[in-house]
């Protein structure tokens, strides 16, 4: 086991063992072609921490969390997830992805499979769990997101809110150690936002490590340990939610908050 170098005062007894750090992003840069989309990202997420990432559109916040399960690749710096560094090695990428759940803005449920099949697909084919067991687990998670009665319907028959809850349950079926949320409520009608946020809040209460890109500032206040504000591909400011909202420090943060909190 290798210990990770930690940006802590030298000699201090702050050697953090690998198991406590869920995600560690060090000096990371990313380009889309010639566009410098992520610049000098340093972010350490501890196990059980809930992080909310906010920022204007195009600030690179979605790209950042997509880098964490390597849906996008970075060109400079390092990303460690559960102690595994993300490189071009496919085996390691698959290892990481098994442990990291992701919820997308547009749900991305598989439209040709029933809800239950959506949930059991990965447990059966990735983890090799027997079908009966996988289905029992799937029903358990469907109950948690409060739609067990929809198990045999197809995604197209469900409302947006229900689909997003299924998407969360689908990720949970893989028993991930970390959950990534990429604007999970922005594609939803206003009346459905709450049902999805409720599920996310209950997940947070159970101690799940979560990174959420979202504009739901109420959610951020309620569950986040830290709020990160991004602009122009870089982390501008991070703080605890109370301080972040009541006393933003950076000019850009102030401007952003004034725009979204009327």
């Amino acid at each position: 086991m290798t210990n990770l170098s930690v940006t802590a005062p030298e000699g201090a007894a702050m050697q953090i063992s690998q198991t406590d750090v869920a995600v560690d992003v060090i000096d990371m840069h990313k380009w889309y072609g010639d566009f410098h989309v992520l610049r000098d990202i340093n972010l350490k997420v501890m196990r059980g921490e809930r992080i909310v990432i906010a920022g204007p559109s195009g600030s690179g916040k979605s790209t950042l969390i997509r880098c964490i399960n390597r849906l996008e690749e970075h060109q400079e710096g390092h990303i460690f997830v559960n102690g595994t560094e993300l490189t071009a090695d496919l085996k390691r990428i698959d290892e990481v992805r098994r442990e990291v759940g992701m919820v997308f803005q547009h749900f991305n449920l598989f439209p040709h499979l029933t809800i239950l099949q959506n949930l059991t697909l990965a447990p059966i084919w990735v983890r090799g769990i027997p079908k009966a067991e996988a289905e029992a687990a799937a029903m358990h998670y469907l109950e948690r997101v409060k739609i067990p009665e929809q198990a045999n319907k197809f995604p197209g028959q469900l409302s947006g809110g229900q689909q997003q809850r299924v998407a969360i349950a689908r990720s949970l079926c893989m028993q991930p150690k970390i959950m990534l949320f990429d604007e999970p409520t922005s594609a939803l009608d206003p009346e459905m936002v709450k049902e999805v946020l409720d599920v996310m809040i209950s997940l947070a209460e159970e101690g799940m490590t979560m990174l959420c890109v979202t504009h739901e500032m109420g959610f951020a206040r309620q569950v986040a340990n830290r709020v990160i504000f991004m602009d122009q591909g870089q982390i501008i400011e991070q703080n605890e939610p109370e301080a972040f909202f009541s006393n933003p420090q950076h000019e850009r943060t102030k401007l952003f908050l004034s725009q979204i909190l009327h």
């Binding site: 992701m102 697909l121 990965a122 990735v126």
Partner: peptide
């Protein structure tokens, strides 16, 4: 992407 993120 969804299939990838599930580790398939």
């Amino acid at each position: 992407e969804a299939a990838q993120s599930l580790g398939l």
